[in-house]
Design a protein around this nucleic acid. Structure first.
Length: 550
RNA sequence: GGGCGCGUGGCCUAGCCAGGAUAAGGCAACAGCCUCCUAAGUUGUAGAACGGGGGUCCGAAUCCCCCCGCGCCCGCCA
């Protein structure tokens, strides 16, 4: 939870003391540029009563030192606060806590599960959308004061993985590399429908694996590990480190899947030896096949019970194709297994290519690595062009930061529920609404601040519209964080960043900080100082790497 | 067929949950701005009655209903 002097709340409370029944529909931030807050009187009074309300609001607020102006325009009461007051709050908070806004350590432990893709091939850009969303969400919640950990549920016991391992056995010639494994996987899936013998051998492998055959287990793990290592290192390059990798097969061998079946015994039904329960929509939810092997749903139940051991709030980030699964899962957990933790699902829609759907088995994918490589190359061309003075080490570091940040931002920025088509032109965009646009602004602020590293004390005065606008935009940061948390939408932080940077650009082009008159200088350096702090904070959540120069 | 989601200038998006003051950015186009803190920037011009149609309301991009288009799902896959 956030701790900071909340001006909006203060104003709202004062107004409520003279006007009953105010809510967020009547009073809110003003987005139209008239003021900071506006009170809408449509529902509070008839047209001839607007003046009375205005007088009442004026009376109760005008004595407050942080209020600048109250103006009544028909049904709107516009309330402007003193920018200096907001700036002072931010300065004091940063001096006291080193951060704005400060947080109170919430006791809740949050567990965010994301990525969790089958280890059957490299991470493609569609799957990476899930990772980016999940990672930024985890970072957002951690920023809000929660104790957050992240997990990847490794599916090492499903049909796809068994197919991959069988494929590698047949066509891999012992060359246990990502490339070979992937091509074997694609090959076996091109043949499996035509050849019952292959299908049978995959089923046998699966059975042996679930029975706990040591050699089979080792073999599966070895092959999965190769793929998983590639996924792990791709993620790491994107700035994503997942705390724990939890292997599905662990719940098979540890007996947890069997325990779940016992817990569900009163609901369980049989059909030719296959085990199922009935969902709230009346559909059958299968837990075991007639050959006795487990189904993903059962293993996922076991996993979710395991998660509950160490977390108060479970957040699963999933592809939209898992919506049905999530619904059934939450029904069974809550209504049949008395699940305790808060449980939320966040879904991301698919990323398709201009040539159609992405498919690992079909070989129609753009991998995350490819995108990162090309994005970095593109960035390097630009840096080389702009910074002929730089040595290649430094240049490479900037290119990497720009390239990687761009990839993340271009994906995170789009609302997760929106399907997107991957286009190189958009993915490699480094101007306008992009990560480099934000990074550049930070580098500019840093450049100026080198002239005056600390400017925390002194009288505050805001004379220009652009500097006041920037200050108020900075002051909105905590409210954005809160909204992003409440709706589990880290993309709000991205949109805010773009707005904030726009305000900075206006400030930058209208005010020369270094050449400012003495009376303004100190305040302007302070603004830059706080601006950098907030950018660092928000970019930490969004996964943008900031540089002092670029 | 049923369920969930999406549809905003030529293109990509924000705004929709909690309805209100001229629908906000970017890309592409055109015309400008570096004797001044990094021009990856910035200013201006042109371009949208917010998929279509009803409804509720003083007021609808936003809420409700119908239709159309697109995505995802409807497996003893995950």
């Amino acid at each position: 939870m956030l701790l900071f002097p909340d001006l909006k709340e203060k104003v709202e409370k004062k107004i409520s003391s003279v006007l009953a029944g105010i809510n967020s529909k009547d009073f809110d931030w003003d987005q139209t540029g008239h003021s900071d807050f506006s009170l809408r009187c449509f529902r509070l009074a008839k047209p001839d009563g607007y003046g009375k309300i205005c007088d009442a609001v004026r009376n109760v607020l005008s004595s407050d030192a942080f209020i600048d102006r109250i103006e009544c325009q028909g049904p709107y009461i516009n309330i402007k606060v003193r920018g200096e007051a907001a700036l002072e709050i931010m300065r004091d908070e940063i001096e006291r806590a080193g951060i704005f806004p400060d947080t109170f350590q919430d006791p809740e432990r949050i567990l965010v599960e994301h990525t969790s893709t089958n280890p059957t091939g490299p991470l493609h850009i569609g799957r990476a959308r899930n990772s980016i969303l999940g990672d930024s969400l985890a970072k957002l919640m951690a920023r809000m004061g929660y104790r957050v950990s992240t997990q990847y549920f490794v599916n090492d016991s499903g049909r796809q993985v068994m197919g991959m391992v069988e494929g590698f056995r047949r066509y891999g010639n012992g060359d246990r590399t990502l490339k070979t494994i992937l091509s074997c996987y694609q090959k076996i899936y091109s043949l499996i429908d035509k050849d019952p013998e292959i299908r049978e051998s995959v089923e046998n492998l699966s059975k042996k694996y679930e029975e706990g055959d040591e050699n089979t287990i080792r073999e599966v793990k070895e092959t999965c590990s190769v793929v998983l290592d590639s996924i792990r290192s791709s993620l790491l390059r994107l700035g994503i480190k997942i705390d724990d990798y939890v292997w599905e097969s662990g719940f098979l061998r540890g007996g947890e899947t069997e325990s779940v079946l016992e817990m569900l015994s009163e609901y369980i039904q049989n059909e030719d030896g296959a085990v199922f329960i009935t969902g709230d929509d009346g559909k059958k939810i299968y837990l075991k096949r007639k050959d006795g092997t487990t189904i993903y749903f059962l293993r996922d139940l076991a996993y979710h019970l395991f998660k509950a051991l160490n977390a108060d709030w479970i957040i699963d980030v999933m592809g939209e194709d898992h919506k049905g699964h999530a619904r059934a899962l939450s029904h069974v957990l809550i209504n049949m297994l008395e699940y305790r933790p808060r449980l939320d699902f966040v879904f991301n829609s698919f990323v398709s290519l201009e040539t159609g759907k992405m498919s690992t088995r079909g070989g129609n994918i753009v991998t995350l690595d490819e995108v990162m490589d090309r994005s970095r190359q593109e960035a390097e061309l630009i840096v080389r062009e702009k910074r002929k003075d730089l040595e290649s080490d430094r240049l490479g570091a900037i290119a990497e930061a720009v390239g990687i940040s761009s990839v993340r931002f271009n994906i995170l920025r789009i609302g997760a529920e929106k399907a997107m088509v991957f286009r190189w032109k958009d993915a490699l965009n480094v101007e306008g609404n992009s990560a480099p646009f934000i990074m550049y602004s930070y580098a500019r602020a840093s450049g100026i601040l080198k002239h005056e590293p600390d400017a925390m004390e002194g009288e505050l005065r805001l004379d220009e519209k652009e500097e006041r606008d920037l200050v108020m935009k900075m002051y909105r940061y905590p409210y954005v964080l809160r909204a992003a948390m409440d709706s589990l939408k880290p993309e709000y932080v991205c949109n805010y960043l773009l707005e904030l940077v726009n305000s900075f650009s206006a400030f930058y082009s209208s005010v020369n900080v270094i050449k400012s008159e003495e009376k303004n200088r100190n305040t302007r350096f302070l603004i830059l100082h706080i601006y950098k702090k907030i950018l660092e904070d928000a970019c930490g959540i969004a996964g943008i790497r900031l540089l002092e120069e670029m």
